[in-house]
Structure formats: structure tokens, C-alpha cells
């Protein structure tokens, strides 16, 4: 085995395809790990709603439905745009990939802006679970638990989004430098997996935050 097999191949791999499949598999394994990470949150949601259905749903009714729904639309579309970018790059069109990356980042940032605005609304309506709280009476306990869940879940998702926007930006930069000109697309695919996964997380969070508790 020679020292460097191909320009992008690390010395422990037989060839570029070997390395590419390894990287993809590694990302999938990381995503499996992430499934369990958010899985813990879903257990918390199921458990708490099981004991306090009325309070939990009373909390859920206070969420800003339109922002959640618009954000769902944005994320679905961003995954689509990024995936199209990958398809363009597979056909050798780096310029289109860069455009798609920029569009993905723009949609992602819009998502985050809306999310920040939503938090602003929530907090100004005294929906942050600590301190004075909007809901009183029998449902207050369950509602506070819902809003604890809400803030942890959305903050984690937003953190993943911020990382994702950065990673997509990095792909755009690499593409501009011509890094993918020789058909080596592993980073584009790997980051795409991550971005779509963050999308899936929102797809699952959306109904349990905004829809299930409504009447």
C-alpha cells in the first residue's frame, strides 16, 4: 500500500470509495446516537403528559402555532434545497451547489430568527416556567413542566441548527475553492445527512409541541 492513495484519502484506507463509505457510515452512526439523545426528550414528554395531561395540554395551547408551522415549512424546504445542491454537484455543477448552500443557510437563518422571535413572545407572555407564570390554578404544574420541556427541546434543536448553518457554510466555501471538482463529494453528502436529520427532529417536535395539546 502506498503512502497516499489519492489526494483526499487518508493513509489507512484502501481507496477513495472505501473512505467515502466509511465517512457516510460514521455519520449515520452518529445520527443513531442523536436519535437516542432526542429520544430521552421524547420519553420525558410522554411521561409528563401521562401524569399531567390537562396541565400539559394547557401549556401547549399557549404556543405560537403559526411560527412553528412556518418553521416546519422552512426546514422541509431547506432540506430539499440542499439535496438539490448535492444533485447539481453530482452532475458537476459547483456553482449551483454554492447557490443551494447559500439558500439553505438563508432559510436556516430565517428559521432561527423566527425561533428567537417566538422565544421573545413566549417570555414576554410569562411562559418561561421559572418565576411569575401565565397559567395559574390546577393546571399550573403541568403547564410549567410543558414549558420546561419546550425550552430545553427548542434550545437544543436551535443549537443543532446553528452548527448546521456553519457546516453548510463551510461546504459552500470548500465548493468555491473547487474542492469537489474531482468528484469527491463525501463532505457534501455527510453534511447533508446532518442537515436532514436536524430537519427530522423538527418534524417530530412540531406535533408534540404545537398540535397534540390543542383542542
Amino acid at each position: 500500500m502506498s503512502e497516499e492513495v489519492a489526494p483526499h484519502t487518508h493513509f489507512q484506507y484502501a481507496d477513495a470509495r472505501h473512505q467515502a463509505e466509511t465517512a457516510l457510515s460514521g455519520m449515520w452512526l452518529f445520527l443513531a446516537s442523536e436519535v437516542l439523545f432526542f429520544g430521552g426528550l421524547i420519553v420525558a414528554w410522554t411521561f409528563c403528559r401521562h401524569w399531567q395531561p390537562a396541565g400539559f395540554d394547557a401549556g401547549s395551547r399557549e404556543t405560537v402555532l403559526w411560527i412553528g408551522t412556518v418553521n416546519l415549512f422552512l426546514l422541509i424546504s431547506s432540506s430539499f434545497v440542499y439535496s438539490s445542491g448535492l444533485a447539481f454537484m453530482e452532475a458537476g455543477n459547483a456553482k449551483r451547489l454554492i447557490q443551494c448552500c447559500v439558500a439553505t443557510m438563508a432559510i436556516g437563518s430565517l428559521f432561527l430568527l423566527l425561533k428567537f422571535y417566538e422565544w421573545h413572545i413566549d417570555i414576554s407572555e410569562h411562559l418561561f416556567p421559572a418565576g411569575p407564570f401565565k397559567i395559574n390554578g390546577a393546571d399550573a404544574g403541568g403547564a410549567r413542566m410543558f414549558w420546561s420541556f419546550y425550552f430545553v427541546a427548542t434550545a437544543l434543536h436551535a443549537a443543532h441548527m446553528i452548527v448546521g448553518v456553519g457546516l453548510v457554510g463551510w461546504i459552500a466555501l470548500q465548493a468555491r475553492r473547487g474542492a469537489f471538482a474531482d468528484g469527491w463529494l463525501t463532505p457534501v453528502e455527510v453534511i447533508g445527512l446532518y442537515w436532514s436529520f436536524v430537519d427530522i427532529v423538527w418534524i417530530v417536535l412540531y406535533p408534540i409541541i404545537y398540535l397534540v395539546g390543542r383542542e
Binding site: S25, A32, V35, Y82, G192, L193
Partner: peptide
């Protein structure tokens, strides 16, 4: 999303098993 944008069907076999594993453990 997993089958479409993430191209799970054409992913390496072990990637499929990881995806199934994640769901199973969940």
C-alpha cells in the same frame, strides 16, 4: 426524509443497520 433526501436506500449496508439500530433502541 430518510429515504429521500438522506438516500438511505443507496447507503452502505452498515449505515442501514445503524439507522435501524437507532430506531430499535429508541
Amino acid at each position: 426524509v430518510a429515504l429521500g433526501f438522506m438516500r438511505l436506500l443507496t447507503a452502505p449496508d452498515i449505515a442501514k443497520s445503524f439507522a435501524i439500530g437507532g430506531i430499535f433502541w429508541l
